[in-house]
Amino acid sequence: MNATAARQHEVLVLGAGYAGLAAAIQLAARTRKRGNLHVTVVNPYDTFTERLRLHMTATGQQTAELHIPELLAGTGAHFVRGWVTAVDAEARTVRVDDDRVLRYDTLVYGLGGIADTTTVPGVDEYAHTLDSPQDAAVLARRLARSDGRTAVVGGSGLTGVEAAAEIAERYPELNVVLLGRREPGAGMHPRAKTHLDGALARLGVQVRSGVEVTKVLPDSVELADGSSIPAAVVLWTCGTRVSPLAAAAGLTVDDRGRVVADSSLRSVSHPDVYAVGDAAAIRQGYGLMHGTCQSGMPAGVHAALSILRALAGKEPKPFRFGYYHTPVSLGRDDGVVQFTHPDDSPRRIVLTGKRAAKYKETVTASPWPTFARMKKMPASGAFWPHGGRYTRTWSTK
């Protein structure tokens, strides 16, 4: 090993989602000419999961296959395909697939979240999720042979709404039932909610709010009021959970297992660990952030810049983020965009119909070109994410 390699600072990024990739590419782009920092990205798949399009994959529609190694090419970052099975925060090592051990000086923890299939009996055994393209493809095959029966979508949040609308539009012979404790679009401006409700009605989606699923069976779901709904297919979008690896490693986590981060996105218990995305509990003035692409990419960028400032002997700056919009697709040619205040509360400004659908498609397509632009940015460049308020213009110099 030569002297340059011996001086390299090893940064290990766990998870190649929106936040993890943003962190890795920012670090690589800003240090590729220095040779004193090496970035490794670990992810179970070598293709990027476009979560914003999984409801399309779930209805048999073809989407682009985006390869992570191709995106990292030329940055100097190294890609390792595998499942993370353990983190040793004291030894600063990560075990991958139980037979490989990777060392780090700084860790970016971005393993994300998955659908919570543990709280309701039968969900794990009989319901589908949208956690990965593979899961979505399995659901697509199941929907294609459902023969006009009932498809139940559990969860009336935005993922459930988008999936129910897509399924109903793609398979009009199916009876699509959307179940949830709250009404769809409950947090939106009345004008946005009215359009959303009308679109679901137009597509024939049967909405049942104020209900609680207590059990999922092979051919039905049971509700808290004692009734049941026959179901050939069940899609579960109620809540998320995160990997237990952070808690097992001894990192300070919140009651949902998310890494508790300080204002610079550094773990409050382990300063060599930075947390981003769904796996991080990041507090802002308005409360805890919720995981989205809109907030994940800026968080990843900020973590990278915090790392570089710390390595330069400077104090990292606080992360300040405000939400900008909530775009929702309602099939291919309809949608609603709720513009928001920084705390994610609704503004009066709303887009609906085809204009909203086009806007949502632009937002959905934006991360990949943004990643590509990051690769070419100068070391002192600024980054402004599409679709969010990120209040710092950064330079590490």
Rank of each mutant, 00 (worst) to 15 (best):
G157I: 11
M188H: 11
H189Q: 02
V211P: 01
V253L: 09
D219K: 06
L178F: 02
V221W: 08
A249K: 10
P184Q: 04
L179T: 07
A281Y: 05
V161Y: 02
R149V: 06
D254L: 11
Q206R: 10
R208T: 15
G250Q: 07
A224V: 12
D272R: 09
A248D: 12
W236M: 07
G155N: 04
L200Y: 02
T194P: 10
E166H: 08
K215V: 13
G198F: 08
G154K: 01
A261H: 02
L158V: 13
T194E: 15
A261E: 04
L179H: 03
L265C: 07
V260W: 00
D225R: 04
V273W: 11
S220L: 12
L245D: 00
L235E: 04
V221H: 10
R182G: 07
L179D: 14
G250I: 09
G155Y: 08
A231Q: 03
R208W: 10
V161A: 01
D197H: 15
I167V: 13
K215F: 12
V207D: 02
V268L: 09
P172N: 11
V260D: 00
P218N: 11
A192P: 03
A246F: 03
L179N: 08
H270A: 15
A165G: 12
A199W: 00
T150A: 13
V221D: 05
P271S: 15
V216W: 14
S263T: 13
A261K: 01
D197P: 06
A248F: 03
L265V: 09
G185W: 09
L174Y: 03
E183T: 11
R266E: 03
R170A: 15
G226V: 12
P218W: 14
D255T: 12
T252K: 13
A249H: 07
R256V: 01
A280E: 01
V260Y: 00
G155K: 00
V213A: 06
E212H: 07
L217A: 13
C238M: 11
V233N: 12
T194M: 10
V207R: 01
E212I: 08
P172W: 08
A224Q: 09
G157M: 06
A231V: 06
C238L: 14
A168S: 13
P271F: 05
A164M: 09
S267E: 01
E173T: 11
C238W: 11
T194G: 14
D197L: 08
T240M: 13
K193R: 15
V253M: 13
G198E: 02
E166N: 05
T252E: 14
A247T: 12
A248P: 00
P190D: 01
T194S: 15
V152W: 04
V211N: 04
V152P: 01
G155D: 09
S263M: 06
V233T: 15
L223R: 07
P218H: 06
L196D: 00
V207K: 01
K215E: 14
A186N: 04
G157D: 02
R208C: 05
P184W: 05
V216G: 06
L174S: 01
A231C: 08
L223S: 10
G185H: 03
S228N: 11
L217R: 13
V234A: 12
D254E: 08
L196M: 10
M188A: 06
G180H: 00
D272S: 15
I282H: 02
A151T: 09
G180Q: 00
